[in-house]
Design a protein around this nucleic acid. Structure first.
Length: 190
DNA sequence: CAATAGATCATCT
DNA sequence: GATGATCTATTGC
């Protein structure tokens, strides 16, 4: 995939703004790329659902660092989730990538997701997309403005309608409208 | 189609 | 020792 990574300033604003702005952009990892169609914002110290809410620990260290870094963690003992750190150093807002529309490298994705039949099931969930894209905890802390894991503008920034809803799978602050998605897109999670 | 169980482990109490 | 920003397979209607 040949495109320029979004600059650090793109991520240097409130997590909610970054979550909205990432919709429709392209996530690239090596030769594999996909369109971001669903995101969630996590606000940090004011957000009981955020990992950073409990303060700085070895795990949340990356969240408290500078923006435009990947935060990858293990959930439920078997799946990994990809976030991108937003805001400024010391302000641990981040954006969870929840669903992707595969663009290039479909064969590689299917290889990493044996048993999946339909394209829309390859990356339509936070745990699925890390498998499909080959993203693991080894990518935790990586700078998303350099290297082979990054986000860039879509080839043609197709217009779309943005939907808003409550976040998925959390207990605290379960009714905060911080989930954003491309309305009508087949690759959005259930 | 909806509901539920089971897998499985790093992190925090 | 409990819990979770999940997924898949299976069961039941």
């Amino acid at each position: 995939m040949k495109c320029k990574a979004l600059p650090r300033t793109f991520y240097q604003r409130p997590a909610t703004d970054v979550a909205r702005a990432l919709l429709g952009k392209t996530l690239v990892h090596g030769a594999v790329s996909a369109r971001i169609v669903e995101t969630e914002a996590y606000l940090g110290l004011e957000d009981p659902a955020a990992h950073a809410f409990r303060g700085l620990t070895p795990r949340t260290k990356v969240l408290f660092g500078p923006p435009a870094h990947a935060y990858v963690y293990l959930i439920y003992g078997m799946y990994e989730c990809l976030n991108i750190v937003a805001e400024t150093e010391g302000s641990p807002g981040c954006v969870l990538i929840r669903a992707l529309e595969p663009l290039t490298g479909l064969a590689a994705m299917r290889r990493r997701r044996p048993g999946v039949r339909r394209d829309e099931d390859l990356a339509n969930g936070p745990g699925k997309l890390t498998l499909a894209m080959g993203i693991t905890r080894r990518d935790n802390g990586r700078d998303v403005t350099r290297g082979d894991l990054y986000v860039c503008h879509a080839r043609q920034d197709d217009p779309f309608e943005m939907g808003v809803s409550a976040r998925v799978g959390i207990r605290h602050a379960a009714d905060w409208p911080l989930r954003f998605y491309v309305v009508g897109n087949r690759y959005v999670s259930r």
